[in-house]
Design a protein around this nucleic acid. Structure first.
Length: 551
DNA sequence: CACTATCACTCGT
DNA sequence: GTGATAGTG
């Protein structure tokens, strides 16, 4: 991914940094890198049962890092990838095939009972899908975290934002794992940020000024620097075999101050050592054009723009074939994509039924995930249905682990058990069967109106260890606020052996309060109305559903 | 000899 | 992503 070896090559110019350096400033986040790392923790679930609550742990991972930034008074701006670039399709396909292969092999290993090998393969098989991004976006919205979906590459969008002033929506730095940001000429990049906020910082101006370890970019400008990156090979264009970062650097160094690369390239072409594809020079120019002028979304004008204004020489060169910078999009489309309403890959609106995660769920998983580390019980939540897999205790004893334990740092299990009796669903005689019938056939089973798996569910042997509790949002909020104490700061989370696994952020009262209250009553009327329209035709139903879903 | 390509291994989750 | 090593000009 990115430019091979570039980070290693740039090591002399990369320094340790802590995120608090950016306190009070806006910092861009390459969503893909955190989504990918987060997906590591639930790769098996994502592969085998993507609709399960466990398959959403990546969201907790992501929000943990968002909260880390907010804790240090850094304003996160999350940037998602949009559509894929035409010129990258070869690389994309390649990766996709490898993932599918891993998935098949992983399933095989699982059948053979080799779980360890299966998990390993599932990790290689995880894909970050637009749907995963969409689900995260719903959480970001409720948490008031700014985000934007890039029309194409998130990297280009981030590099663009880094050129803007903060009051214009700009960002002071970018957090990513992708060295492409360097090629895009991003001014400040934080790589390898861990869960404590420590990372490694690259600054472009500094790099272009400093001489270190025999490396000198003083005669480089941004364009030369990007040219070097392209020569070394990137996702859009593989390098000429035998050329890596070092030779790319020395090639550009030798020809420095020569504003055209043609000489560099013709030297390369004449060099018998290397076999350069005939169309390499052509591709090189196009690739350089992408890194300089890729299409990005401009929040202010709510339309597409170029990363850097198009220079005339590119205009001539590309001969009107600007699609390689990302095909143009109508402003309305670009906006719908940027705001997360339109799937940038399929260009279809996201199915409203697939908005799966209510703020309630996030709160629960955030607080309870940590809590669950104190005991063997697994706590799953899904929508406002809170699933608690517990031991054989009676209903009233079913306990959510209380966050108090964690925040006080005590390593006790089940201390401060919260009796859930009062939240039990008796008053919701809301029959599961009715809800099930209302559900349109093609709706993903993770929609808010999905079947409620009750222990008494017909046709299914109830699992004695599984108890599902139906909460409406108001109740859930009460539950959550008692779980997450007021003004809880980051707390250390410990594993079963008492070893620190990092910090956690149970949501604060403030955060809980930010959930609009009217939602709960709306939701009740929703459910009621839905039940009443069981017999109406599908169109009418889906229209009504859509109406009620507009929260 | 310097460099790239490729492998196995590690980390965090 | 890193480090070790084999292969190359």
């Amino acid at each position: 991914m990115g430019i091979p070896n570039l980070l290693r090559f740039m090591k002399p110019f990369i320094e340790p940094v802590h995120i608090k350096k950016y306190a009070g400033q806006r910092v861009g986040i390459d969503a893909y890198s955190w989504l990918h790392k987060g997906a590591y923790s639930c790769s098996m679930e994502l592969c085998m049962s993507p609709r399960s609550a466990g398959a959403r742990r990546y969201i907790s991972y992501f929000m943990h890092h968002v909260n880390l930034l907010r804790h240090h008074k850094v304003v996160p701006v999350v940037v998602f990838d949009g559509g894929s670039m035409p010129c990258k399709s070869a690389t994309d396909e390649d990766r996709h095939k490898k993932r599918e292969l891993s998935l098949v092999l992983g399933k095989e290993k699982l059948e053979q009972g080799n779980t360890a090998a299966a998990i390993d393969l599932f990790r290689k098989a995880v894909q970050i899908t637009p749907s995963m991004a969409y689900q995260l976006i719903q959480i970001l919205k409720t948490e008031n975290v700014e985000f934007v979906v890039a029309p194409y590459e998130a990297d280009a969008q981030l590099a663009y934002l880094a050129t803007l002033d903060a009051d214009q929506g700009g960002i002071a730095a970018v957090i990513t794992e992708d060295s492409d940001l360097i090629a895009y000429g991003c001014t400040a990049i934080i790589f390898k940020m861990d869960r404590f906020g420590n990372g490694e910082e690259f600054r472009m101006e500094k790099t272009l000024k400093t001489v270190k370890d025999g490396l000198c970019f003083q005669d480089f400008d941004q364009n030369l620097f990007t040219g070097m990156c392209v020569l070394a090979g990137c996702d859009f264009l593989p390098s000429v075999p035998g050329i890596g970062t070092k030779r790319a650097y020395s090639l550009i160094s030798k020809h420095k101050n020569i504003d055209l690369y043609c000489q560099v390239l013709s030297t390369l072409k004449l060099d018998k050592r290397y076999s350069m594809p005939d169309d390499y020079i052509d591709s090189f120019w196009k690739t350089l054009a992408v890194f300089n002028h890729a299409r990005v979304y401009d929040v202010k004008s709510k339309s597409l723009k170029h990363l850097k204004p198009l220079e005339e020489r590119y205009l001539n060169y590309l001969a009107g074939n600007l699609d390689i910078l990302g095909p143009a999009l109508a402003p309305s489309m670009a906006r719908a994509i940027a705001e997360g309403r339109l799937n940038p890959v399929t260009m279809e609106t996201f199915d409203e039924f697939s908005r799966t995660i209510s703020p309630v769920e996030f709160i629960d998983t955030s607080a309870l995930n940590v809590a669950s580390q104190y005991g063997s019980q697994e706590i799953l939540t899904q929508e406002s249905t809170i699933t608690i897999c517990s031991s054989e205790e009676s209903r009233d004893d079913i306990a959510a682990f209380v966050v108090d334990d964690i925040t006080s740092g005590e390593q006790k299990c089940n201390k401060g058990v919260l009796a859930l009796g009062k939240f039990l669903p008796q008053k919701h005689s809301s029959p599961a069967v009715e809800c099930k019938e209302v559900k349109p056939k093609n709706t993903p089973d993770n929609n808010p109106f999905k079947k409620r798996k009750l222990p008494t569910d017909q046709g299914k042997v109830p699992d004695q260890n599984e108890l599902l509790i139906d909460l409406d949002e108001e109740e859930a909020v009460v539950l959550c606020s008692s779980l997450s104490r007021e003004s809880v700061g980051p707390a250390e989370s410990l594993d079963r052996n008492g070893v620190s696994t990092g910090l956690c952020w149970p949501l604060t009262q403030e955060s809980v309060a930010s959930i609009p209250n009217e939602r709960s009553s709306k939701r009740q009327s929703q459910q009621e109305a839905i039940r009443n329209i069981t017999n109406k035709n599908k169109d009418e139903r889906s229209g009504l559903l859509k109406f009620f879903m507009r929260l």
